[in-house]
Design a protein around this nucleic acid. Structure first.
Length: 287
DNA sequence: CACTTGACCTGTCCGC
DNA sequence: TGCGGACAGGTCAAGT
């Protein structure tokens, strides 16, 4: 499930593999995926060169030479994959077998590039979307304009300030709220709350200062560790080159319910908080 | 204001 | 084997 580290990894892959290519044509199978009128999308993308890629929260921004930018949200099952005759791993390698099957039934948009390489937006659940906006106005786009600050680019005092706009809200709900912080999703919310020994449903105003400081440090630590490991590949996420990320082998609680807490050995539990599956240690994390 | 539910979708897994 | 239901979790809109 793409959260900040996964999207960051994808963006780095786009800068490595896609920048410099010209998009010659594209086709698509699910019109709702493209939120821009198709004639406008076509006009601004065909013949345009990819200049750079960047990330804001969980949103991917691809800047084109047409003075337009493609916004891409992967939602839960979106993938961006680059396929080139020049990029091969050897016969029988799992990355090759995955990429060689593209396009497949979950391919929503198939882009063709100038040197016979290809670029795929895959999304089996069809929640993801792409949109074309003028590059100079991209920050006015409704989604981008509503995002909170980047958790890796703020200080502890700023972190505390944005959370304390909602002193009576549950901490996990606000960690997940993209208008409060941009990029934190379910996995890293659970991991950082466990690391700081904070129950996901405790009210923000009831968290002792020292624990809130720990939460900020641990949130940055898990995000940075995951970026270093190329993200979490659980159900569907892969990198632009088809490889998987390895962060999940470092996870302490995500999908570990029933197993021992790495700190105190009491069995971890799964519950629901902020409307989402939530893993925690009932011994270390109390309200 | 805080919180829940439903909608958007499809694939997997579990129990009967 | 087949079938229904829970579950996966990002975001928004609507309802309590």
């Amino acid at each position: 499930m793409p959260e900040l580290p996964e999207v960051e990894t994808v963006v780095r892959g786009l800068n490595e593999h896609l920048v410099g290519h010209t998009i010659t044509s594209f086709d698509f199978d699910w019109p709702k995926t493209i939120k821009t009128p198709i004639e406008i999308f076509k006009k601004e993308i065909e013949g345009a060169k990819v200049l750079s890629a960047e990330r804001r929260g969980k949103l991917i921004i691809i800047n084109l030479s047409s003075n337009h930018s493609i916004l891409i949200h992967l939602k839960m099952t979106g993938q961006l994959v680059y396929k080139s005759p020049k990029l091969q791993y050897g016969a029988g390698h799992p990355n090759d077998s995955l990429i060689s099957k593209l396009p497949d039934k979950s391919t929503r948009i198939h882009f063709k590039l100038d040197d016979n390489s290809e670029f795929f937006f895959n999304d089996f659940r069809k929640f993801g979307w792409v949109e074309m906006v003028p590059t100079t106005d991209k920050h006015l786009h409704k989604f981008i304009a509503s995002l909170g600050p980047e958790p890796l680019e703020i200080t502890y005092l700023q972190f505390k300030e944005v959370l304390f706009k909602y002193p009576n809200a549950q901490i996990k709900a606000k960690l997940l709220d993209q208008h409060v912080l941009a990029g934190v999703g379910n996995i890293y919310a659970d991991e950082s709350l466990w690391a700081a020994k904070i129950h996901p449903q405790v009210k923000i105003k009831d968290i002792p200062e020292v624990k809130l400081e720990t939460l900020f440090a641990e949130l940055q630590a898990v995000l940075n560790l995951s970026i270093e490991k190329g993200g979490s590949s659980s159900v569907n996420y892969i990198k632009v080159d088809g490889k998987t990320g390895s962060y999940l082998s470092f996870a302490n609680v995500y999908k570990k319910e029933g197993g021992p807490c790495p700190r105190c050995a009491v069995p971890l539990i799964r519950t629901v908080a902020a409307g989402r599956g939530t893993r925690l240690c009932p011994n270390c994390q109390k309200i």
